[in-house]
Amino acid sequence: MTSQTKILLVDDEPEIRSMLSIFLGVEDYDIIEADSGKAALRQIIGAKPDLIVLDLGLPEMDGQEVITAVRKFSNTPIVVLTARSDDSETVKALNAGADDYVTKPFRAEILLARIQANLRQGKTVSEPDAIDNGPVHMDIGRHEVRLNGTLVAFTPKEFALLEFFVRNRGRMLTHKQILKEVWGPAHTDDTQYLRVYIGQVREKLATVPGLGQSITSESGIGYRMELLTAAVAVAAE
């Protein structure tokens, strides 16, 4: 990354902003800050950051309100940084338009990985004919999946589910987001249906040893397909 990549840190605790500014500054990000929800909106409009790290518990304007407001005019990636332990708050933030979340207390390297994953995702503006995540290669036009170069058959719905995961690799997706995208708005409560298909996709990915575990779950929230490298997957064979 270069200093041209701009990150907005939104947190009402100066100590956290200072710590993150130092840590992310070492990674050559250009850091700007806001200590309230309203200040965050002013920075988003004026400075146009490439990514937002957002606390939920903010003065003047709650983080949930900030997400809703931002999504009316911007698709800038939002990584929620929260101390709120209620899963429903996290799900609400993700469904409102946040792209990922990290809970406090947090490990700096985990936050950095989430930031990098969402910055990469944000740069994907076109719809390529083929997409990859490490050893997973999907030819969209041919409707084919290759795992480490080997063709593996996926049903149309399994293919659509895997495609959604690969396009959003590294990002947490709620049950509602996945069901709405793959099955449509009428199926957003069919979580049992989703679990069945997740199991089927994992089973087919597992033809490469260890690859079935690349789709991880968080109870009450949703699923994430981890960012993979071909080298790691091949070594796992």
Results as ranks from 00 to 15, higher is better:
residue 151 L to A: 14
residue 180 K to Q: 15
residue 52 I to F: 01
residue 111 L to M: 10
residue 179 L to G: 12
residue 111 L to C: 05
residue 165 F to A: 01
residue 37 G to Q: 05
residue 139 D to W: 06
residue 187 H to L: 13
residue 202 R to Y: 09
residue 170 G to V: 03
residue 24 L to H: 09
residue 53 V to A: 11
residue 153 A to E: 15
residue 164 F to W: 14
residue 3 S to G: 12
residue 184 G to L: 11
residue 3 S to D: 13
residue 101 Y to A: 00
residue 58 L to G: 11
residue 145 V to P: 08
residue 227 L to W: 05
residue 124 T to D: 14
residue 41 L to T: 05
residue 56 L to W: 01
residue 167 R to P: 02
residue 83 A to E: 00
residue 189 D to C: 10
residue 58 L to D: 11
residue 199 G to W: 00
residue 72 K to Y: 12
residue 216 T to K: 07
residue 224 R to D: 00
residue 82 T to N: 08
residue 148 N to D: 14
residue 127 E to M: 07
residue 23 F to I: 06
residue 161 L to W: 08
residue 211 L to V: 09
residue 174 T to Q: 01
residue 116 Q to C: 08
residue 230 A to M: 14
residue 208 V to S: 13
residue 108 A to Q: 15
residue 226 E to G: 12
residue 138 M to T: 04
residue 138 M to N: 02
residue 226 E to W: 04
residue 24 L to F: 10
residue 13 E to F: 11
residue 139 D to R: 06
residue 65 E to Q: 15
residue 6 K to E: 01
residue 13 E to L: 06
residue 181 E to S: 13
residue 82 T to S: 13
residue 156 P to M: 09
residue 152 V to S: 11
residue 141 G to Y: 07
residue 43 Q to L: 08
residue 49 P to M: 03
residue 5 T to A: 10
residue 6 K to T: 10
residue 7 I to N: 02
residue 6 K to G: 01
residue 151 L to W: 06
residue 135 P to W: 07
residue 39 A to M: 04
residue 90 T to R: 05
residue 81 L to C: 14
residue 185 P to L: 13
residue 83 A to G: 15
residue 218 E to V: 02
residue 30 D to F: 14
residue 27 E to F: 14
residue 179 L to S: 04
residue 159 F to V: 09
residue 228 L to T: 01
residue 178 I to M: 06
residue 179 L to I: 07
residue 65 E to N: 10
residue 45 I to K: 15
residue 162 L to V: 05
residue 15 E to A: 14
residue 34 A to H: 03
residue 227 L to T: 13
residue 188 T to M: 08
residue 47 A to M: 05
residue 45 I to M: 14
residue 19 M to W: 08
residue 193 Y to P: 09
residue 156 P to F: 09
residue 82 T to F: 01
residue 89 E to C: 10
residue 46 G to C: 09
residue 86 D to E: 12
residue 17 R to I: 15
residue 6 K to N: 06
residue 90 T to I: 10
residue 195 R to D: 15
residue 69 A to P: 02
residue 43 Q to W: 10
residue 21 S to W: 04
residue 129 D to M: 12
residue 75 N to R: 13
residue 112 L to I: 07
residue 208 V to P: 09
